[in-house]
Amino acid sequence: MRSLLAILLFAIPVAAAPAAAQNTYETDASHAVIMDFETGTVLFSKNGDEPMPPASMSKMMTVLMTLEAIESGSLSLDDELPVSEEAWRRGGAASGSSTMFLDVNSRARVEDLLRGVIIQSGNDACIVLAEAIGGSEAAFADMMTQRARELGLENAHFANSTGWPDPDHMVSAEDLARIAQILIRDHPDFYGIWAEREFTYNGIRQYNRNPLLGVFSGADGLKTGHTEDSGYGLVGSAERDGERRIIVFNGMDSNAARAAEAERMMRAALTDYGVYDLFAAGDTVEHEAEVFMGTASTVALRVDEDIAVGLHRRARRDMTVSVNYDGPVSAPIAEGDVIATLTVEAPGMEPQDFPLVAANDVPRKGLMGRIGAALVHMIRG
């Protein structure tokens, strides 16, 4: 028998929303994600876990690898790295791509190279860092992919340090959001660079391409991207009233469309979406599971992890939580056994399942007790 108990949560008086009101975000982007920074909860996703060509947004991973090298001591901000002919030819002024304008056979400080990547999106700066850390850009790309796996980024595969188009260079929007979360959370001493509006190197001033900076209050990062294959994309972050959101989108058809979508999506991220705490680790739910052949007829159900969900604020009033299990559950039951599932559902959100465990032991009945229970079961059918 399948047992289910539906519990309406947050049953508070709310004025009815107009019939046309949306409980989710709509965007022309081909891929998009809105993420809560603190919890990592994905609040909105459109093809968010689908690998896509990330263009220069993948340079966030190059920066992350560089910062980890600095913190490990294998690299210093004051180290001066050589600019190879390869870096100059494929990423410098001769390449016709985004560049820091490094001179061939010159040397550049790591601190300047970081700004060259973050602010100027310099392909030459990326290759110089890749060659210094990995020995070659190809080896560095393998290191990036390996590190991505260690971080749990299952849809990220890097073929280069720059985001230059390559069929093997693919990252999902959700993975880009998680890279942004790591950069903000784990490297706060460097995060301020992402908000710097300009950087001058080799006598050439270049401006940060992030359309949110100086336009959207609280915006302070992170990275744009554009190629013919990917369209125009952005990884952005902003904080207001103690809440930080990360947005990622790709596939817009123009720079102007990207700028408009960046502001619209970030406003929705901070205004229309919320994270709601449902249970704390150790809480028991209201419903108990029925037990067969046990010394007790029911067993309490407990959550062993904090449970929070993120969703559109208008969908909150229609959110339901249900307890599901195949029951009655046969004894013996040990405390901590997973015996049920907590399912959270709301309009515009994929159902989310969380395990429920037995809150206590339920031993099996003795022989006579089992015989009696079997007789009752037979009589009742």
Rank of each mutant, 00 (worst) to 15 (best):
T341F: 06
V83K: 12
A359Q: 01
R240W: 03
D103Q: 10
F44H: 06
S237H: 05
H169E: 04
V110R: 02
A20I: 09
V33R: 02
G218E: 04
H377S: 13
G203P: 04
I339M: 00
A315F: 04
S136K: 10
V303W: 06
T320C: 08
A219W: 05
V376W: 09
G225Y: 08
L311Y: 06
L375F: 15
T298G: 06
A11C: 08
P211G: 15
A373I: 08
M35N: 05
E288D: 13
A21E: 15
L375E: 02
S56F: 08
A93P: 08
M378N: 10
N255Y: 15
I12P: 01
N23I: 13
T99I: 02
V235L: 04
A21T: 14
D277H: 09
A262S: 14
S30T: 11
A296S: 13
P51K: 03
R364D: 11
N105G: 01
A15R: 15
D142P: 00
E85F: 11
L153I: 14
R370V: 14
P347V: 05
S254T: 10
K365G: 09
R178E: 04
D124G: 08
A358N: 04
I247S: 01
S330P: 15
D283P: 14
V33I: 13
S3Y: 15
G122S: 02
R316N: 07
G40F: 00
R264E: 08
S322L: 01
A69Y: 10
A15P: 02
S136I: 11
N202M: 15
I7F: 07
M170V: 13
S217I: 07
L234N: 06
L4A: 11
R267E: 11
L64Y: 05
G135L: 05
G221Q: 05
I182H: 04
N210V: 07
F199W: 10
L356Y: 03
G116R: 02
A55C: 08
A289S: 12
R197I: 00
A156E: 04
A334E: 11
Y232N: 15
K59E: 12
P211C: 14
M266W: 03
T27S: 13
Q120F: 05
E111G: 04
P355M: 03
D36R: 00
A260H: 05
F44Q: 00
I204R: 11
L342V: 05
R115S: 13
L278A: 12
R2D: 12
I118W: 01
L176H: 09
F10P: 01
T39P: 01
S217A: 14
G96N: 10
T39N: 03
N105F: 05
Q146N: 10
Y207Q: 14
R258Y: 07
P351I: 08
A148T: 15
V309C: 06
A20Q: 12
V83H: 09
Y232V: 11
L113P: 14
G218H: 03
D36N: 15
N324H: 13
